[in-house]
Design a protein around this nucleic acid. Structure first.
Length: 418
RNA sequence: GUGGAUAUAGUUCAGGUGGUUAGAACGCCAGAUUGUGGCUCUGGAGGCCGUGGGUUCGAGUCCCACUAUCCACCCCA
């Protein structure tokens, strides 16, 4: 136990960190290009924020939260998703007084107590964006387009975008009623879990994979037929604008999302190569959430993207190969007599902004060369008796194997060139 | 939370029906005469065989429990 990371958690070793950093930097760049600014919220929040925000009847709130009492008896929960905390911060700091729309992005750890699986951990990480203040379909499209562009820039252009509309409070209630009536007459064909869902959250039945349930659903009422005029127009406009900006999509009435706050547009970006955990990104519009959390009525939309799933995908497609020289130079000394001379050059390089190392293992010159090519270093500066005397060091290019003698200043100029 | 599979060096894996000092490859370290990496050759270090019980004269091998990993369900990122 002592030397084992807790179940569902994992370490990112230096090699992993380099890859993550690469992906994170690209995400930041794309977000900024779209006018989204970074926001960081606490790792934990008051439990009630998630109970209210995500919805009491959801799986997340019912059985997946890391909830505990702190030393003064407050109920605290590690954030299971990124949206509710950003909404809370938006309200708390009265950011609705800033010019709207207010657009944020975040990179955040999230925690859910679930059975771990490939692409599903107890501590995982989400990239997310939230746009507050605009009811326009153009915002729904922007959020989807941001995700798509980001994935494209990473080299993932074949992912499928599925969209659906859940309508607003009013049309959804109508639909729920009709769906309930319909399903109540077909109870004998539904699986056990769906019978439970029938009372609690009938929408969930729509994405059941059970064969019997699927069959029943073929003739079930579809929410898209129940949208009110406003919601229908909104959805039509989203589709038009997606096409206008060149995003291919598929209308999928089966996506309902596991969080209660969604209204109108919902979407998922899916990869078939991830096994059961196929959703890389999921999001949509949530026009009522901010008001429900105590803020002024404010329409909003956003998404969350799973970093672990994303890197899993990139890794499997060989898109995370980061092979750069780790070091500009390695200072190799022929003997301990040259150490101080070497150290002077080493710190001169470091002060000048170059990356450089020197032997600290007492290795032979041969072993130093071997080590230098493993790190790998681009150049080795070899310092022996002769070099110290003449003031000209031997500079070896490890990629070509060629070497020549030059002054330290000339060597630095060489580093600068590459 | 439910069902199934798995657990042996740093890593990927061998170790028929239980029988002495548990192996390989890669990686790591060191050598192959005088100050030079990658290729090659040689040598070395490194494993209470996931943990704890049990059966047995004897368990890496059989049984049980626990833990972890993987897969499916559930759900989602």
């Amino acid at each position: 136990m002592l030397t084992k990371a807790p179940r569902g958690t994992r370490d990112l070793l230096p090699e992993d960190c380099a890859k993550w950093l690469h992906v994170e930097e690209l995400f930041r760049k794309i977000c900024e290009r779209f006018g989204y600014r970074e926001i960081r919220t606490p790792t934990f929040e008051h439990t009630e924020l998630f109970q209210r925000g995500i919805g009491e009847a959801t799986d997340i709130v019912e059985k997946e939260m890391y909830t505990f009492l702190d030393k003064s008896g407050r109920s605290i929960t590690l954030k299971p998703e990124g949206t509710a905390p950003v909404v809370r911060a938006f309200i708390e700091h009265k950011l609705f007084n800033e010019p709207l729309p207010a657009k944020f992005f975040y990179i955040s750890p999230c925690f859910r107590y679930e059975r771990p699986q490939a692409g599903r951990l107890r501590e995982f990480h989400q990239f997310g964006v939230e746009a507050f203040g605009s009811p326009s379909p153009s915002i729904d499209v922007e959020v989807i387009a941001l995700a798509v562009l980001f994935l494209e820039k990473l080299g993932l252009s074949q992912l499928k975008v599925h969209i659906n509309s859940l309508g607003c409070k009013r049309c959804r209630e109508d639909y729920k009623k009709r769906l309930n009536e319909f399903l109540n007459n077909k109870k004998e064909f539904l699986c056990e879990t769906c019978l439970v869902r029938l009372d609690r959250n009938p929408l969930r039945i729509l994405d059941c994979k059970n064969e019997g349930c699927r069959k029943v659903l073929e003739s079930a009422p579809v929410i898209l037929d129940f949208l009110c005029d406003d919601c229908r127009k909104h959805f039509e406009q989203v589709k038009k604008e997606l096409s206008a900006v060149g995003i291919k999509f598929e209308v999928d009435p089966g996506i309902v999302r596991g969080l209660d706050y969604y209204t109108k547009t919902v979407f998922e970006i899916i990869s078939e190569e991830l096994g059961a955990q196929s959703a890389v990104c999921g999001g949509g519009r949530y026009d009522d959430l901010i008001e429900e959390c105590g803020g002024p009525p404010t329409p909003a939309a956003g998404f969350g993207m799973g970093v672990e799933r994303l890197t899993l995908l990139l890794e499997s497609k060989g898109l995370l190969k980061i092979d750069s020289w780790a070091m500009d130079a390695f200072i190799a000394i022929a003997g301990e007599e040259q150490r101080e001379y070497g150290l002077r050059l080493l710190y001169d390089l470091r002060r000048d902004g170059f990356s450089a190392e020197i032997d600290v293992m007492g290795r032979s010159l041969k072993a130093q060369l071997k080590y230098a090519s493993k790190i790998p270093a681009k150049y080795v500066f070899i310092i022996g008796e002769e070099e110290v005397e003449t003031g000209k060091i031997t500079v070896k290019d490890l990629s070509t194997g060629l070497q020549e003698k030059m002054t330290f200043e000339e060597a630095k100029a060489l580093l600068k060139k590459r």
